[in-house]
């Protein structure tokens, strides 16, 4: 059943995933965000098995994997994507082993389980989403500058390694929360699609990050609402969120093509 607080949570998750995702797409790490989300599986499983909030387990796994990958990348210079790919499949294997024959729980982890969202749960998650957006806003320009030229950023006194780590931390939190709405398999969508739709319509940064958050919010809200009203015999709203997002993306492609915004 659809509760109002699930709907409000979907809006905030959409805003946070869209906003943080706009940076991930620029960093050419879109697929990293997607693959990283699957790393949450063992954390969710451990949470369920040991009877604590599985999303805290998901976050712990996401962040520690992100830090391990980040460190290996710094030492070996192997590409981030390749390392995330390796970590993702390993996590998937461990996750499925841990779930064993608990297929219902595995399905909820893959596709989200909005029925588990309690009011307190939603309030905490919304608070965390708002905090993640606010902190990201503070470091947004610095991250973009480091993307344009790391030397330029360091010469400007920006501690690039530190802000990258903060960003990874925030991404891990937002992905862990987003899993509740769309599940580990579809969370990459919320990070990628609002951002690329926004990019279709943007020639400057402010509009880009704002539209990305807005499209994330619309996809989350309308997707969950449609699922709540029509149900579609689906036990989870994730696929509807994806469909709404794809419609937004398609519209932006047509608008960009007709108005030649980015060329």
């Amino acid at each position: 059943m659809l509760d109002y607080y699930s709907l409000i949570l979907a809006i905030f998750v959409g805003i946070a995933a869209g906003y943080l995702g706009s940076l991930m797409v620029l960093e050419k790490m879109a697929l990293v965000g997607d693959a990283l989300s699957h790393v949450a599986l063992p954390g969710l499983a451990i949470g369920i098995t040991l009877n604590f909030n599985p999303y805290i387990g998901a976050f712990a796994f996401l962040f520690s994997s992100a830090v391990i990958i980040w460190q290996i990348q710094r030492v070996t210079k192997i590409s981030f994507e390749a390392l995330v790919g390796a970590m993702f499949t390993l996590a998937l294997a461990i996750g499925i082993l841990l779930y064993g024959d608990n297929l219902d729980a595995l399905e909820a982890a893959f596709f989200g389980d909005i029925s588990e969202v309690t009011m307190i749960n939603a309030v905490v998650a919304i608070g965390v989403c708002v905090a993640a957006v606010v902190i990201t806003k503070v470091i947004y320009d610095k991250l973009v500058l480091a993307m344009i030229s790391e030397d330029l950023a360091i010469a400007k006194g920006i501690r690039v390694a530190r802000i990258n780590l903060i960003y990874l931390f925030l991404v891990s939190i937002v992905v862990a929360i987003s899993i509740q709405i769309v599940g580990t398999l579809l969370v990459g969508f919320l990070v990628i699609v609002p951002a690329i739709a926004a990019k279709n319509l943007s020639t400057y940064m402010k509009r880009y990050s704002l539209l990305s958050s807005l499209f994330g919010a619309i996809a989350g809200f309308v997707g969950v609402l449609l699922w709540g009203v029509f149900n579609f015999n689906l036990p989870f709203p994730g696929p509807m969120v994806v469909f709404v997002g794809i419609v937004i993306f398609a519209i932006t492609v047509v608008v960009n093509w007709r108005l030649k915004i980015t060329t």
């Binding site: 620029l26 050419k28 973009v144 993307m147 344009i148 030229s149 030397d151 330029l152 010469a155 990019k199 943007s202 020639t203 400057y204 940064m205 402010k206 509009r207 880009y208 980015t262």
Partner: peptide, 17 residues
């Protein structure tokens, strides 16, 4: 400092920003 290479082709950022 003006570095030799910068990555700007993919960044939707205006000169003013």
């Amino acid at each position: 400092y003006v570095p030799q290479y910068v990555t700007v082709s993919d960044v939707p950022m205006s000169v003013k920003e």
